[in-house]
């Protein structure tokens, strides 16, 4: 069904090795990976395997990175921050907003890379902001302070800010953590809908069932290396889950969708 979508990688990492200090043990080791245009790629793996580090390295936040990261073939370190912000948006794992910033102000800041020195959002930007708020289901709350919103609303506020940035690539570090199941599904659904408009989504995910349900491609990581990458249906299997997570799982298709459950069901409570 999605075979028509082009799969040329827009963002590539070539032999990326990253340490948090010059002499420290690398947290990413010789990682080569490409993210295809218009596809939703999930990064999965056990805690500490380097998923978040990979995203931070791509964003250029880690000074001790070796190897090449390229956007459309141009080395990322040669692209000024402002130009980069028009192409790639990033949602950190933890987001903190100071008190007394309204949702409307937060979303407006998302468009910063497009504004001139003393200028601000134009008509097109404003309709983009309204659309972003509608998309995440926060229309009508624009005047509310971000810190007065509930946890789920706050996470959606940050996603609205990223939509306001209007980039063709979005990197998200555990975007559905701390959300209830309803919003986990609605946010991932939203991200997948964005790929249909040609946007490229890369998200760190923990839940293999959510990954199987929403991601086109999956990159499985372990100990700072890439263990497997490919189409989700071809890559997630009982074997790969065991090798990556040290976890015995039953992986089977149900209703055309991959399901991953523990092979040894825990003892039911008495």
């Amino acid at each position: 069904m999605r075979e028509t979508v082009t799969t040329v990688p827009v963002l590539t990492c070539d032999r990326l090795t990253v340490a948090y200090a010059p002499a420290a043990r690398p947290v990413l080791n010789d990682v080569s990976v490409g993210f295809a245009t218009g596809r939703f790629t999930a990064l999965v793996g056990p805690n500490g395997c380097g998923k978040s580090t990979l995203i931070k390295a791509i964003m250029g936040f880690l000074p001790h990175a070796q190897g090449e990261i390229a956007l459309d073939g141009t080395a990322l370190r040669n692209i000024p921050r402002r130009d980069l912000a028009r192409r790639i948006a990033y949602l950190p794992q933890e987001n903190h907003c100071p008190d007394h910033i309204s949702l409307a102000e937060l979303v407006e800041l998302g468009g910063y890379a497009r504004y001139s020195l003393f200028g601000g959002p134009d008509e097109r930007d404003r309709s983009l902001f309204a659309d972003a708020l509608t998309t995440v289901g926060l229309e009508g709350l624009a005047a509310r302070p971000v810190n007065d919103l509930s946890g789920g609303q706050r996470q959606r506020a940050w996603i609205a800010m990223i939509l306001a940035q209007d980039t063709d690539i979005i990197l998200l570090d555990e975007p559905v953590n701390h959300l209830d199941v309803h919003f986990q599904y609605s946010i991932l659904d939203l991200l997948r809908a964005l790929t249909r408009c040609g946007k490229t989504i890369v998200a760190v995910l923990h839940d293999l069932n959510l990954t199987a349900a929403f991601a086109d491609d999956v990159v499985m990581m372990r100990d700072g290396r890439i263990f497997a990458q490919g189409r989700t249906a071809d890559t997630i299997s009982a074997e790969s889950v065991r090798d990556v997570f040290d976890f015995d799982a039953d992986v089977f298709a149900r209703g055309g969708r991959l399901v991953c459950l523990p092979a040894h069901a825990p003892q039911a409570p008495a």
């Binding site: 250029g60 936040f61 912000a85 948006a89 950190p92 100071p98 800041l109 998302g110 910063y112 890379a113």
Partner: peptide, 23 residues
């Protein structure tokens, strides 16, 4: 005043500000 927006972005966190285009 000319730096008002990037300064506000920095209060959201340095990484967040950088990803939004702030040097």
């Amino acid at each position: 005043l000319a730096m008002a927006r990037p300064l506000t972005l920095i209060t959201l966190g340095r990484d967040k500000a950088a990803s939004a285009g702030v040097d």
